[in-house]
Amino acid sequence: MVRTLLARGLLLGLLAGLVAGAFAFAFGEPRVDDAIALEEAAARAAAPEQAAGRPAHDHAGQPAHDHTGQAGQAGHDHGEEAAIGRPVQKAGLFLATGLYGLAVGGVFALVFAGLRGRVGPRSDGRLALAAAGTAFAAVILVPFVKYPANPPAVGDPETINGRTLLYVVMILVGLAATAIAVGTARRVTTGDAWARWTAAVAAFLVPVAAAWWLLPAVNEVPDGFPATLLWQFRLASLGTQLVFWAAFGVLFGWVSDRAARRAAAPARVAVPG
């Protein structure tokens, strides 16, 4: 059964990754192009100052950026000496989201196999949706609120290791908060579902809010960078993750419910004529 779930997770994760890649291509890549254009314009404006011996303001610091909302990936070189052109980068976006879907789908399937029949809704479809929504909240939304994704030309390359560590810490906080919430809900013995949900939500939010307050803020947006472009990029980044997890949760839940119904259906017995 675990092997079947793993194959299902890999296949559906790949499909959901390609769907998310299409969303990122349509809504995220134009924002990246706009940010690169600003970066290149700043570099051209700085060139005469450097030639005249005056210090130029450096806009070349690039943080890692992607459309899955993850921090700490390898940065891009968008200048004239870029080894990989933008058309190739855009095509590679689908490869990246597809591989991301494969990895996440495989891990999700193994976790789903461990949860099945032990916690959450009894229906496989509902459990898949609940698990996907919880994963999105814990692994994506919790760190994104504190450390949102940034486009090119935003961020200091010298701080990328520190920013990556902080992002990973927030992911761990989200996972720990989820475990605490599940444990709290299971300890509420009253039959009132509202009491159980209230306790679980409170148990989730307390460590998350504490981490948001205690961890240092990171604000490396250069002066003059368009706020509209910044938030459009961040919304596209978060939207890509939302599309992935929604598509994956629905697909995994639908296929799992169909498989469960087929397994529960009585076998047909042939009657001799």
Rank of each mutant, 00 (worst) to 15 (best):
L230S: 03
W254D: 03
R187H: 13
P30F: 11
A195T: 13
H76I: 10
E39V: 02
A138T: 08
G133D: 04
G249W: 00
L238Y: 03
F248N: 02
L10N: 01
T240Y: 02
R187D: 11
V107S: 08
P222T: 09
A149Q: 03
L10Y: 04
S256M: 09
F252Y: 08
F248R: 02
R31C: 04
P121D: 06
I36V: 13
A135F: 03
A83T: 12
A247T: 03
A193N: 15
P222D: 08
A135R: 06
T134W: 12
R196G: 15
L205H: 07
V168R: 05
A149M: 06
V104N: 04
W231K: 07
G125S: 04
W194P: 01
Y100I: 02
Q89H: 12
P63E: 13
E40M: 04
A109W: 06
I180P: 00
E81W: 14
A7R: 07
P222V: 11
L102G: 07
G13R: 01
Q232S: 04
A91D: 12
T97Y: 02
T190R: 06
A217I: 11
V145I: 09
L229F: 14
A267Q: 15
I36N: 02
G69L: 06
Q62H: 12
I140R: 06
Q70R: 10
L93S: 00
F144H: 01
L127S: 04
V218K: 05
R186N: 12
H67P: 08
H78K: 04
H57M: 15
D257Y: 05
A71R: 14
A259Y: 04
V218P: 04
R234Y: 00
W231Y: 08
W231N: 11
A210N: 04
V139I: 09
A202H: 06
V201M: 15
D66Q: 05
T184D: 10
A153K: 01
A128W: 03
R262I: 07
R186M: 10
G72Q: 03
G79E: 10
R44E: 10
P266Y: 14
A210M: 03
D257C: 11
A195L: 14
A137C: 15
A103V: 10
A135I: 04
Q50S: 06
A113G: 13
P30Q: 03
P63S: 10
A177S: 05
